[in-house]
Design a protein around this nucleic acid. Structure first.
Lengths: 167, 167
DNA sequence: CTAAACTTTCAATAATTTATGAAATATATT
DNA sequence: AATATATTTCATAAATTATTGAAAGTTTAG
């Protein structure tokens, strides 16, 4: 496999993985393009490379910046804006995990808590609803806490966390 | 909040969470309906409850069965088929984690491995591609291993894993 | 201040995904 | 075997989501 083929394979794989996880294709592809680029890229270059429109590029770059994994780079003497992504995979994972917890997990946990706290009217179906949503609440909270714990450790957290677990 | 409201809130929240994570709404809703039901439900009852068509119900039940989280229940004397979902949240999480690893993570890891193994032609861009995809490969493999480790422990694995990590 | 370079917004459109419903198939009952 | 009941399939419709491109908005340079 040559460079070009490998690059395309990487970008398209990442794009479709994104889709599978509820992230849109262009967004995932822009990020992966930046991830393997040796230098910051301009909007023009991204459009060109991925064959997507200006509007699409602009909107998805904004989203990536909202997620905190892409930043504008100002290059002296250049009028255009350039973009880079977080290059450290662990840092990247940390950002994504944090954001996803905040945006998606936490609100659901809140609702599970509310639902599992309804008044027990003594009927079987109410008991079941309370019991099951309570169990889900506990699981979600533990999983979320665990995630944050793992992710908020210093360098090499993942490997070290894994070692701990294996013991 | 009364039973009916709580129930609807739970089902619709679960449905939209599903959507966010690349699982379709009907599938998530059927599963959540079964999850809080006190007895197995027939296709008829599911359709009625969620106001979805017969075809939709049939297709999504099949998918849930493919995922291994819903099973057919044969009720003596009944001609219809009835369905239940795994009621134990930890067992449920285990199933989902395993399947997701097998279907989605493993194939991507494979591709990352391939891409990161291309011949180093000495150019900067090739070096970067190799370096970055290698880092991603390592991360993905560690994360996947960790997931499986956590999930393949006996009862209360999650709480116990968390305790280990806190120490 | 004005013009050029560049970016953002957003209505229109395209692409993709999901849902419907009726015909086809399968299974059970008499 | 014939009939009734139940389930699946699949072409088509509907809904949702992503993309385009051109107009509007910004910023910088002269």
């Amino acid at each position: 496999m040559e460079y070009q083929e490998a690059k395309e394979k990487f970008i398209s794989t990442w794009g479709s993985l994104g889709t599978l996880w509820g992230i849109n294709k262009a967004m995932a592809q822009i990020q992966s393009l930046l991830f393997i680029s040796t230098k910051p890229l301009s909007m023009e270059e991204i459009m060109e490379e991925l064959k997507i429109s200006r509007g699409n590029t602009s909107m998805n770059l904004r989203q990536l910046m909202d997620w905190g994994i892409v930043t504008k780079e100002l290059i002296p003497g250049e009028r255009k804006e350039f973009f880079t992504t977080e290059k450290d995979v662990q840092e990247l994972a940390r950002h994504i995990a944090k954001e996803r917890s905040r945006r998606e997990i936490k609100p659901v946990i809140k609702i599970l808590k509310d639902v599992s706290s309804i008044k027990d009217d003594g009927t079987e179906k109410t008991k079941e609803l309370i019991k099951q949503t309570k169990a889900l609440y506990d699981l979600a909270e533990t999983a979320d806490a665990m995630m944050n714990k793992i992710v908020n450790q210093e360098q090499n957290w993942m490997t070290r966390s894994l070692l701990k677990l294996i013991k």
